[in-house]
């Protein structure tokens, strides 16, 4: 067992983990942040996407120990409990960008990473960026609409918090 420490959604956290503990396991099982989902566990589906030091990664394909000292943002960090949804989350609701909702945390985190990189993406750029996020319900159209709408409603700088 190793002790690891990192910032998760702005809070300092630490825990004892095995070497094989994946970041997604640390988030869900140790910290109780179950908004980050495990869909395929083979890095195909993207339900586990979180940000590590500002970059989208698949939390099922990164060891928790590799996030030592990092700043991690999960779906729980995208809006305060009880506060209004962030603009990307709100756009998913407004545009019916989800049905069962299983893929949504990863979709929102990928969308946030895209909009930080490209504040005003084209539809093609949105679709390209979602290459690693699978949705079995929506057929993607409303997810793409939601992300394009979120890009419109956010500030011109594409602020980091969605």
């Amino acid at each position: 067992m190793t002790t690891i420490s990192m910032q998760v959604n702005g809070k300092a956290v630490s825990g004892n983990v095995e070497g094989r503990t994946l970041l997604v396991g640390f988030l869900r099982d140790h910290l109780g942040l179950t908004g980050t989902h495990v869909g395929c566990d083979t890095s195909q589906c993207g339900a586990c996407v979180v940000h590590v030091d500002g970059l989208a990664v698949k939390a099922c394909t990164m060891f928790a120990a590799e996030a030592e000292g990092a700043e991690v943002t999960t779906i729980e960090g995208m809006a305060e409990p009880g506060a209004p949804l962030g603009p990307i989350q709100q756009a998913f609701q407004d545009h019916h960008g989800l049905q069962c909702g299983f893929c949504t945390p990863g979709m929102v985190m990928s969308a946030a990473a895209l909009l930080r990189e490209v504040p005003r993406p084209s539809e093609a750029q949105v679709r390209d960026y979602l290459e690693g996020n699978l949705c079995r319900c929506t057929g993607y159209h409303n997810i793409v609409r939601a992300i394009l709408a979120a890009a419109e409603t956010r500030g011109p700088q594409g602020e980091a918090q969605a």
Partner: peptide, 9 residues
């Protein structure tokens, strides 16, 4: 290669 999240690692 892969997808954006894979390319970040």
């Amino acid at each position: 290669i892969g997808d954006p999240a894979v390319r970040n690692r």
